[in-house]
Design a protein around this nucleic acid. Structure first.
Length: 106
DNA sequence: TGGGCGGCTACCG
DNA sequence: GCGGTAGCCGCCC
């Protein structure tokens, strides 16, 4: 209540996030834009960070505009996201994220 | 009230 | 393609 747009922004983000199908990913800024709040990319990141560990939201499908995981490689967050993504058919190619589906092997 | 900090982005060299 | 820089915006001291 009271807070207005931000609250709505959060709701929108969670809603959109919950509708992202498996095997698809989206950038922070893109997600924010879809929610109707362009420029809130960092805020999306903050939200993801705030998510509980037992959340069922596909937060791992949210990556940065460079198509990379926004964590340092040695962090647990990176490992967690990487593992979840690989389970859904994604694969890390040169620190970049790419969809598996055999197209990597030309 | 003020300043610094992020799971970001776009631009520039 | 990559590092540095400047905007962006809510959140937490």
């Amino acid at each position: 209540m009271t807070n207005q747009p931000i609250d709505r922004f959060k709701s929108q983000v969670f809603h959109i996030l919950s509708e992202i199908p498996k095997g698809e990913c989206i950038a922070y800024g893109e997600l924010a834009k879809l929610a109707g709040f362009p420029g809130y990319a960092r805020q999306v990141g903050s939200l993801m960070k705030n998510l509980p560990n037992d959340t069922k939201l596909p937060w791992h499908r949210v990556i940065n505009a460079q198509r990379r995981i926004s964590f340092a490689e040695n962090t647990d967050g990176y490992l967690r996201q990487k593992e979840k993504l690989e389970k859904e058919g994604w694969v890390i190619v040169g620190s970049k994220l790419a969809f598996n589906k055999n197209l990597i092997k030309k």
